[in-house]
């Protein structure tokens, strides 16, 4: 009934959960940037970055399996990079005759493809750990800390507040449509309707969702005004980072920089 189980946040008390959200957000971005900057084929660095990711997953007590399962969902896009194994110039590895064509897999092509897949795979793992160990309100604080404008943070906050309500609404609409999607007993009839009609029905559902959202926002606005909202978005000052948070931040940034430097050697 309720779709809150979609929310990937898993409450816990691990060291990763306890780390300040601002530090986590910055380190996740720094890690992903490091992975992006690591040259093609610098295998030792990829291995160490992967070891880093797995270490964090263990420390987070989420379970490596949990993170890897979720990470697999993000993998299909990897196929978008598959053509490079044929097109990157370099030493030929295998010749594949396909009909009248001859496809040549090149060594640099394979290296490039595997590197892209690895970058993507380790990056998404860290993004999963961030989402699973940080509650959304904490992420909003982190956004404010990295200077996301207040108005945008406020929109993010309200969106999150009503996200599950509206996803629930969308699911109920689909359920009501499904309930009436029946087949007649008459063998001469084909169920389903025309494609354009189906698309228009889906559009009508979206339209009614938007309309209800707009009307709901009027009620929310009135409730906000009733509690003193005057159009100005205010926020409490950011809490200070503890010494442990600072230490973790600089230590990890230093390590990532060291990894990146060593990447130049391979």
């Amino acid at each position: 009934m309720h779709v809150h189980f979609l929310d990937p946040y898993r409450p816990g008390s691990s060291p990763i959960h306890q780390l300040d959200a601002r530090v986590k957000l910055i380190l996740t971005l720094a890690y992903i940037l490091t992975a992006a900057l690591t040259p093609i084929g610098a295998w030792p660095v990829y291995i160490l970055l992967l070891a880093w990711a797995v270490t964090i997953e263990i420390l987070s007590e989420l379970g490596v399996g949990f993170v890897l399962r979720r990470a697999a969902l993000a993998l299909p896009f990897v196929l978008a990079a598959l053509p490079v194994i044929f097109t990157a110039p370099g030493a030929a590895l295998i010749h594949l005759p396909i009909g009248p064509w001859m496809l040549t897999i090149t060594l640099p092509g394979v290296e490039r493809f595997i590197s892209i897949a690895l970058k993507s795979w380790i990056s998404v793992q860290m993004a999963i750990v961030l989402a699973a160990t940080t509650s959304f309100p904490d992420l909003l604080t982190a956004m404010r800390a990295i200077k996301v404008p207040r108005l945008l943070v406020a929109i993010f906050g309200l969106m999150w507040r009503y996200l599950f309500v509206l996803v629930d609404e969308a699911l109920r609409l689909m359920r009501a449509r499904l309930s009436r999607s029946g087949e007649s007993d008459r063998p001469d009839l084909k169920a389903g309707g025309a494609l354009i009609w189906r698309a228009k029905v889906a559009g009508g559902m979206a339209g009614s969702l938007f309309l209800r959202a707009i009307e709901r926002s009027d009620r929310i606005y009135m409730a906000m005004v009733a509690r003193g909202y005057d159009g100005e978005v205010r926020a409490a000052p950011l809490p200070r980072l503890s010494r442990r948070d600072w230490l973790t931040l600089w230590l990890c940034l230093g390590l990532l920089l060291a990894l990146l430097t060593s990447a130049a050697l391979f």
Binding site: I155, Y162, L166, L173, F210, R212, I214, I220, Y221
Partner: peptide, 24 residues
């Protein structure tokens, strides 16, 4: 004006939810 925040927030949520509505 000041109605913007709830309007954009809730409508953004509706767009997110609306992306789930599909047709065969």
């Amino acid at each position: 004006g000041e109605r913007q925040v709830p309007l954009m927030g809730v409508l953004a949520a509706a767009i997110f939810a609306g992306q789930m509505l599909n047709f065969t």
